[in-house]
Amino acid sequence: MMAAAAPVQATRLPRQPGTRYPLDKSRGEWAMWLTIATEGSLFVCLFASYFYLANNKNRWAIDHPPKLHYALIMLAVLLSSSFVLHWGESQLKKQRYVAARVGLGITILMGLGFLALSAFEYMEHWKDLTPDSNSYGSIFYTIVSFHAAHVIMGLLMLSYTLTLPRYSPTSRSPYRPYHVAGLYWHFVDIVWVFVVAFLYVMPNVRVYGF
């Protein structure tokens, strides 16, 4: 015979909520981390395709490895923009809202500068390589353009944050837009580090040595 619903000692009773809990403010941040995870996985696939195609014996001819000057300047711009944004966020924590806004504005300007530079870089590159020249051109431009599209998305998020009426602590969503948009921007920056390393620096190292 089985006992019906035999009494069982509850191992650990949960804490009874005594007072009302504060309003949750971190949903957006969690969602952003997951977005970054899946987007990161997308870039992993793109880079994997890049290396896979590169392995494709004797068909992968990078006669002239991409020139480094623009890419490195762009890297500098983007990385410093991350620091500016970080500074802006620290101002936000100190409740210096104007300074936070200024930091955000400068970041956006730097992002725009990045896009302008990448337009120049495209124009220079385009002279001897296009997406339809060969598989190298295809994957190169696809990765660079995907990244540019992410920069544009990041800029849109930042601009959206800039136009928000107020930054003071709020119980209204989006609770922490500055922080959340910032996370995305840092992610976009880090991806560019990999783009520069894999697409620009490595071919040069292969051809010219250190």
Binding site: M2, A3, A4, A5, A6, V8
Partner: peptide, 11 residues
Amino acid sequence: RGSLDEHAPID
């Protein structure tokens, strides 16, 4: 066979 009215102790 058993019946829906009863179940084994959970531990």
